[in-house]
Computed example of a mutant assay.
Amino acid sequence: MRIDIITVVPDILKSPFEASILKRSIEKNIVEVHVHNLRDYTDLSYNQVDDYQFGGGAGMVLMIEPIDKCITALKKERDYDEVIYMTPDGVTLNQKIANSLSLLNNIIILCGHYKGVDQRVRDLFITKEISIGDYVLSGGELGAAVLCDTIIRLIPGVLSNETSALTDTFQDNLLAPPVYTRPADYKGTKVPEVLLSGNFPKIEEWREDEAYKRTERLRPDLLE
């Protein structure tokens, strides 16, 4: 997979891809992540990429021309499956969306900033709009990093144990069951006996039951 991220503040996106699972996936050539500075695609003085909105109002708006130039340049090099815009009024990211996007080859992620982007960008170039929650950030960069993490960890070969991602919370519309590790008895609080039994069918049955109970208690909406 190749992911191209368009942003006006590329420095925000450095650290997420320089550690842990995302770093290893890039080093293993499983995924490519390229960050593009939108200011490299403007001919205006001071590398201007934003302007006041027509009709008045607070906040600056990212202009269409530099975004057009950047997306057009990328599309000349390869075909893209999706051009995603990170915006608080997009569809809320969930595991089903992440699963679907992880099967693609090439995607572009456009990070909004200031008051957003010229609506014509959304009308002409964007194929999917995604939010990471009902709140507003200073820009789409952190949302883009979250989206990349949810996608990349699902790609075969990224996790050392590929079944781990398949048993995550939300994969079956259930929350994950409780998990335990050593010691089996910590200051009188003990691990459930079934997990120490070695009876794997019983263990799986216990996990499924606990996952359902936890979901029913914490997120009953998932069961609907």
Rank of each mutant, 00 (worst) to 15 (best):
N37K: 15
L38M: 09
L38S: 10
Y41C: 01
T42G: 13
D43H: 03
L44C: 11
N47P: 00
N47C: 05
Q48G: 08
V49R: 10
V49F: 11
Q53Y: 10
G55S: 11
G56P: 01
G56V: 15
G57Q: 13
A58G: 08
G59S: 13
G59H: 05
G59F: 13
M60D: 08
M60C: 04
M60T: 07
V61F: 08
P66C: 06
I67H: 06
I67K: 01
I67L: 11
D68S: 09
D68Y: 06
K69W: 07
K69C: 02
C70K: 00
T72L: 04
T72C: 10
L74M: 06
L74K: 09
K75M: 13
K75G: 01
K76T: 05
E77A: 06
E77D: 03
R78E: 05
D79P: 07
D79N: 12
Y80A: 02
D81T: 15
V83M: 04
V83D: 02
T87D: 07
P88G: 12
D89Y: 13
G90Y: 14
T92I: 12
T92P: 07
L93P: 12
L93H: 12
N94L: 07
N94I: 00
N94W: 04
Q95T: 02
Q95Y: 05
K96C: 12
I97D: 04
A98M: 09
S100C: 13
S100W: 06
L101R: 13
S102C: 10
N105I: 08
I107G: 07
I109D: 02
I109Q: 07
L110I: 08
L110K: 07
C111V: 02
C111M: 03
G112E: 06
H113L: 14
H113R: 15
H113I: 14
Y114T: 15
D118E: 15
R120D: 04
V121C: 15
V121T: 14
R122V: 15
L124K: 03
F125L: 04
F125N: 01
T127W: 13
T127P: 09
K128N: 07
K128I: 04
E129F: 10
S131L: 01
I132V: 15
I132N: 01
D134Q: 00
D134P: 04
V136S: 02
V136C: 08
V136F: 12
S138V: 02
S138Y: 06
S138H: 00
G139R: 08
G139V: 13
G140D: 11
L142V: 10
L142Y: 14
A144T: 14
A144C: 11
A145W: 03
A145C: 12
V146Q: 04
V146T: 12
V146S: 09
L147V: 01
T150V: 02
R153C: 14
L154N: 14
I155P: 04
I155T: 13
I155G: 05
P156Q: 08
P156E: 03
G157Y: 12
L159S: 08
N161I: 12
N161T: 13
N161A: 12
A165N: 07
L166P: 05
D168V: 07
